[in-house]
Deep mutational scan, measured.
Amino acid sequence: KELVLVLYDYQEKSPRELTVKKGDILTLLNSTNKDWWKIEVNGRQGFVPAAYLKKL
């Protein structure tokens, strides 16, 4: 499993997105899109802007 660090808080703006908090370490599911990465948070899957995340 690949992990990502959340660099900035992000509030979901659609049902396909997820809310994340700065400092969270989460599972990366897909990073093929350069702008939006798919991650998992508490069993939910969704997208967060790639600029808000850093691969560990």
Rank of each mutant, 00 (worst) to 15 (best):
residue 1 K to G: 15
residue 1 K to A: 12
residue 2 E to D: 12
residue 3 L to V: 09
residue 3 L to C: 08
residue 3 L to N: 06
residue 5 L to K: 06
residue 5 L to F: 09
residue 6 V to R: 00
residue 6 V to P: 00
residue 6 V to W: 01
residue 6 V to G: 01
residue 7 L to E: 03
residue 7 L to N: 02
residue 7 L to T: 05
residue 7 L to M: 11
residue 7 L to K: 05
residue 7 L to C: 06
residue 8 Y to I: 10
residue 9 D to S: 10
residue 10 Y to D: 00
residue 10 Y to C: 01
residue 10 Y to F: 08
residue 10 Y to P: 01
residue 10 Y to N: 01
residue 10 Y to V: 01
residue 10 Y to Q: 01
residue 11 Q to G: 08
residue 12 E to K: 15
residue 12 E to T: 10
residue 12 E to N: 10
residue 13 K to I: 09
residue 13 K to Q: 14
residue 13 K to F: 06
residue 14 S to G: 14
residue 14 S to R: 11
residue 14 S to V: 05
residue 15 P to Q: 10
residue 15 P to G: 12
residue 15 P to D: 14
residue 15 P to I: 08
residue 16 R to L: 14
residue 17 E to I: 04
residue 17 E to V: 04
residue 18 L to C: 09
residue 19 T to K: 07
residue 19 T to E: 04
residue 20 V to S: 01
residue 20 V to R: 00
residue 20 V to F: 04
residue 20 V to E: 00
residue 21 K to T: 11
residue 21 K to H: 15
residue 21 K to I: 08
residue 22 K to A: 13
residue 22 K to D: 02
residue 22 K to Q: 11
residue 22 K to P: 03
residue 23 G to S: 03
residue 23 G to I: 00
residue 23 G to L: 02
residue 24 D to T: 10
residue 24 D to I: 04
residue 25 I to S: 02
residue 25 I to F: 05
residue 25 I to T: 06
residue 25 I to N: 02
residue 26 L to H: 15
residue 26 L to T: 07
residue 27 T to E: 11
residue 28 L to D: 00
residue 28 L to V: 07
residue 28 L to F: 04
residue 29 L to K: 05
residue 29 L to F: 04
residue 30 N to C: 10
residue 30 N to F: 08
residue 32 T to V: 11
residue 32 T to Q: 14
residue 32 T to W: 09
residue 33 N to M: 09
residue 33 N to C: 09
residue 33 N to Q: 10
residue 34 K to E: 13
residue 34 K to T: 12
residue 34 K to P: 14
residue 34 K to C: 09
residue 34 K to S: 12
residue 35 D to V: 12
residue 35 D to P: 02
residue 35 D to M: 14
residue 36 W to L: 05
residue 36 W to V: 04
residue 36 W to H: 05
residue 37 W to Q: 01
residue 37 W to C: 02
residue 37 W to N: 01
residue 38 K to Y: 15
residue 38 K to Q: 13
residue 38 K to G: 05
residue 39 I to W: 00
residue 39 I to R: 00
residue 40 E to I: 07
residue 40 E to A: 09
residue 40 E to D: 06
residue 41 V to W: 13
residue 42 N to S: 11
residue 42 N to F: 09
residue 42 N to A: 10
residue 43 G to N: 10
residue 43 G to L: 06
residue 44 R to S: 07
residue 45 Q to W: 12
residue 45 Q to P: 08
residue 45 Q to E: 12
residue 45 Q to M: 12
residue 46 G to D: 01
residue 46 G to I: 06
residue 46 G to Q: 02
residue 46 G to E: 03
residue 46 G to L: 06
residue 46 G to N: 02
residue 46 G to R: 03
residue 46 G to C: 04
residue 47 F to I: 08
residue 47 F to H: 06
residue 47 F to V: 07
residue 47 F to Y: 15
residue 47 F to E: 04
residue 48 V to T: 02
residue 48 V to R: 00
residue 48 V to C: 05
residue 49 P to S: 03
residue 50 A to L: 02
residue 50 A to H: 03
residue 50 A to Q: 06
residue 50 A to D: 01
residue 50 A to G: 05
residue 51 A to F: 12
residue 51 A to S: 13
residue 51 A to Y: 10
residue 51 A to V: 13
residue 52 Y to W: 07
residue 52 Y to H: 11
residue 53 L to H: 00
residue 54 K to Y: 12
residue 54 K to E: 09
residue 54 K to W: 12
residue 55 K to H: 08
residue 56 L to I: 13
residue 56 L to W: 10
